[in-house]
Amino acid sequence: MTTENYVFTIDPVPMQGKEHNKLYPFYEALKEGRLTTTSCLDCAKVAWPPRQTCPACWSSKMEWVDLPTTGTIISFTIQEAGFPIGYSGPLIFALIKVGPVKFVTRLVDTDRADMHKGANVELAVTRVDTPALPTEARVLPTFKISK
């Protein structure tokens, strides 16, 4: 991909590297198979998504904490049509419970017959094959059904 092409192309994946994003530790952990978020050092609120400002007390004193890499399905949908460009279906989306937070994810390597409310899921990180400029490996927090 040339720089010029990149400028004319939509990039639906966020910049994840240290030079672009203060939340880069999330992505570095995700590349190691860990799911993390921020916890407030003043009031102990664990927030999802991670942030620099505590949504409960507005403290700026945050620490990174690990979330479990397993969860359970609260609600799910199987998308059969109407995909953003670059995607083909079916796509399985779910709202899942992961430790203290709710989390929206896409299920990969999953048979639709195994999808049901309450089913157990586990982190299955997706590596994005379209690099941003400057080239950086990017990852997304997708999940799969636990066997």
Binding site: P12, P84, I85
Partner: peptide, 30 residues
């Protein structure tokens, strides 16, 4: 497919729509 991708800009791109999420699955979950 571009139009649908554009509509994903109305969701949280970093944490939700970067995984391909758009409005139909959001309201389908509800």
């Amino acid at each position: 497919g571009e139009t649908i991708l554009n509509m994903g800009a109305g969701l949280d791109r970093e944490w939700e729509s970067s995984m391909g999420m758009t409005a139909p699955p959001v309201f389908a979950l509800i």
